[in-house]
């Protein structure tokens, strides 16, 4: 039951951030400007002014989303399978995802502030972290699912309990086990 209140609390904070962003002053080219000569192409607006208007609201929003993901994953486990290994795993993976996100956000802020980022693996460093780090940090949760499958997702005892339930319901409907 505690999970749902945590989830509700995080969703309300997210709505609060959305309301803040909604009210934040719109800067010139907040979502890009049309290219002067190329139809259908947008170029960046004044990113520094946009950041002044939004502050770190996007950063905190994404941190909350990461926390929401970890809590939802824990929430999905059967109550009797919410074991310490799962909790520790979700917490560590959420912290890793938050670290990746922090690197992206502050790398982006630095680049907008005038630092020329190095090109790594074909992209400017903050973008490389965004492409592979965001995917990779969420992939880690998926691999944790694979690792924990028989420990907390579908324990053999739970699978047997489900088979028994199927047999019981069939018997009640007169279909035979």
């Amino acid at each position: 039951m505690r999970h749902i209140y945590l989830i509700l609390g995080l969703l309300i904070v997210l709505l609060g951030i959305v309301a803040f962003v909604w009210e934040a002053p719109l800067t010139a080219g907040a979502t890009g400007l049309p290219h002067a000569t190329i139809d259908g192409m947008k170029v960046g607006g004044d990113a520094a002014a946009r950041l002044d208007a939004l502050g770190n609201a996007p950063y905190f929003m994404q941190l909350i989303v990461i926390a929401l993901v970890a809590i939802l994953y824990d929430f999905s486990l059967p109550a009797h399978r919410r074991i310490r290994a799962a909790r520790v795993g979700f917490t560590l993976l959420a912290l890793a995802a938050a670290a990746v996100w922090t690197a992206i956000w502050f790398g982006y802020r630095a680049a907008v502030g005038g630092d020329e980022p190095a090109i790594v693996l074909g992209f400017p460093w903050p973008s490389t972290v965004a492409i592979w780090g965001v995917w990779g940090s969420m992939l880690a949760f998926d691999l944790f699912y694979v690792w924990g499958f028989r420990r907390f997702i579908l324990h053999a005892d739970d699978e047997a309990a489900f088979a028994a339930l199927v047999a019981e319901m069939k018997a009640e409907r007169g279909e035979g086990a």
């Binding site: 890009g32 947008k42 170029v43 960046g44 990113a47 992206i104 907008v112 903050p126």
Partner: peptide, 9 residues
């Protein structure tokens, strides 16, 4: 900005 993580949007 188009090559940075959030693009022009």
């Amino acid at each position: 900005e188009s090559a940075l993580p959030f693009g022009t949007m």
